[in-house]
Amino acid sequence: MAHVLPPAPPMRSGANTRQEPVTVGALRVVAEGVTTAVRPDQQTGDGRYPIAWLTITAPRGATPTATSICACGRNLFAAGHHKALALIADHTDHKTRCPLRADLEGAAA
């Protein structure tokens, strides 16, 4: 559903600007009566999408943490310098043995 905004109050300057109601997501009137279309992002993508996420938090003076999440059901958390480094290495290794990633690579071949 498009929402229609009310027209702006008239301007007192001598500029040639025509104001019309603006419909959100449709045409918009800009300076000097030039209309432009507001469109959604036209990026088409290449069909890839993320299946695994690694989040690392290491604030100054605090305990570092890491979280490894994958669409296959993996959800691991580590706190502390050595445990976070071990989880980062395990997350990298998980890419080679994740069943979802193996299916995607086999389908592309």
Rank of each mutant, 00 (worst) to 15 (best):
P64Q: 05
N75E: 05
R60M: 10
A102T: 13
R12D: 12
I51S: 08
R60D: 12
M11S: 12
V24I: 14
N75K: 03
V34K: 12
N16H: 11
P21G: 02
L76D: 05
E105L: 15
R28V: 15
Y49D: 03
H81Y: 08
P99Y: 05
P21L: 08
T92D: 12
H94V: 04
A109W: 12
D41I: 09
A66H: 02
A8P: 06
G25N: 12
C70T: 01
G80P: 01
H91P: 00
A26T: 09
D93E: 08
S13Y: 08
T17V: 13
R28H: 10
P64W: 05
P7V: 14
D90R: 01
V34E: 11
V4I: 13
T63F: 02
A84I: 02
G106D: 15
I69H: 08
T96Q: 11
L104A: 13
H3P: 02
T35E: 13
D46L: 13
A79G: 04
A107V: 05
L27I: 06
T35F: 08
R74F: 02
A66K: 02
T44Y: 06
A79T: 03
T63H: 07
H3N: 09
G73N: 06
T65H: 02
H91D: 09
L85C: 05
T65S: 09
L54T: 04
L85G: 01
D90K: 01
G73P: 03
L5E: 08
T35Q: 14
A107L: 12
H91S: 04
Q19N: 11
D93H: 05
G73I: 07
F77R: 06
P40G: 15
K95Y: 07
A8E: 11
A108D: 11
P99E: 03
H91V: 01
I56D: 00
H94G: 00
A26V: 08
L76G: 00
I56S: 02
A109H: 13
I69Q: 09
P50T: 06
A109L: 15
H81M: 09
S13G: 14
P64E: 04
Q42K: 13
A15G: 03
R74Y: 03
T17P: 05
P59T: 07
G73A: 04
H91R: 00
I51W: 12
A2V: 13
A2P: 07
F77N: 05
I51D: 06
G61H: 10
V22F: 08
R60W: 10
T23Q: 14
G106L: 14
N75D: 12
G33F: 00
H82Q: 13
C70I: 01
